[in-house]
Design a protein around this nucleic acid. Structure first.
Length: 261
DNA sequence: TCAGTTGTTTATAT
DNA sequence: AATATAAACAACTG
């Protein structure tokens, strides 16, 4: 599930509870979510540390303390959250960090990504890898700069975190559909107007999604019907096409989003 | 039983 | 150097 809007929702929730909290004890229920650090070492690093305000870049959640940062990438199924002490556990709880008030928890069904610890900014940069500008805050000129220098098909470029950080498979389809551009079109083929339209669609889709903490299931959104068999375009009723672009399931309207290679 | 899945990395090929 | 593809990671669901 987690793309930029979900992670921003996690950040918002933690921002209400985490700043100022001090780590009392770390319980690693499943070390499979830890990366580059053992459970005892994580306990030593975090013990007594005080959390500051949580931050986000793309799909990365950054939880700074007074010495080093906890980094969380939720993969497809991860959920970092704050819980009052004694709150019932989620189904796939993996880590519980006891605080002086309440707990910071991480649950994750599939464990595709997980948790890292960065001692400093250099370590953080190594862990998150090359990241483009955050999709939520980029302006039109920055968007065009990031996208237009690339070649290849539009969708894989939009979802490349080194180009633009935060967009995932579903957001990319929603944005392309909103902008009436085929996700398989070559980036080189995009006109100035189409790039502007893409940026406008991205802003609009992100703003609404961030407000909801996820891509909303509204009628009039293509995401809502992407898994429905024989689904039709919410705009023109043409049967939607399903294909695979860049190895990912992709849905688009053959009438609204003309293909030109 | 088998295909598919909202994310990313790695290896291999073009 | 960039881009494309497939497989792998893990644990489900239909």
């Amino acid at each position: 599930m987690p793309e930029l809007p979900d992670v921003e929702g996690f950040r918002r929730e933690l921002a209400d509870h985490l700043p100022g909290r001090v780590v009392r004890r770390v319980h690693v229920l499943d070390a499979g979510v830890l990366n580059g650090i053992t459970a005892p070492a994580l306990g030593r690093r975090l013990h007594g540390r005080r959390f500051a305000a949580p931050q986000r870049h793309g799909k990365w959640l950054i939880l700074p303390t007074d010495h080093g940062s906890l980094l969380v990438h939720s993969g497809m199924t991860g959920h970092p959250y704050y819980a009052g002490a004694g709150a019932p556990p989620e189904r796939y709880e993996r880590v519980i960090i006891e605080l002086d008030q309440g707990e910071l928890r991480y649950s994750d069904l599939r464990k595709l990504r997980g948790i890292w610890f960065a001692e400093d900014g250099d370590a953080l940069g190594e862990i998150v890898g090359e990241q483009g500008p955050d999709a939520l805050s980029i302006d039109r000129a920055g968007f065009v700069d990031a996208i237009a220098a690339r070649r290849g098909r539009l969708k894989p470029v939009l979802t490349d975190q080194a180009v633009l950080a935060g967009l995932g498979n579903m957001l990319a389809d929603e944005i392309c559909w909103r902008a009436r551009i085929n996700p398989a079109n070559a980036v080189e083929s995009l006109t100035v107007d189409e790039l502007s339209s893409l940026h406008r669609s991205m802003r609009s889709v992100l703003r609404t999604s961030v407000r909801h903490g996820c891509i909303p299931h509204f009628s009039g959104w293509i995401t809502t019907v992407r898994r429905v068999v024989s689904a039709r375009c919410p705009r023109c009723e043409t049967p939607l096409h399903h294909t695979r672009i860049g190895g990912r399931g992709t849905v688009w309207c053959p009438h609204c989003q003309l293909w030109r290679g």
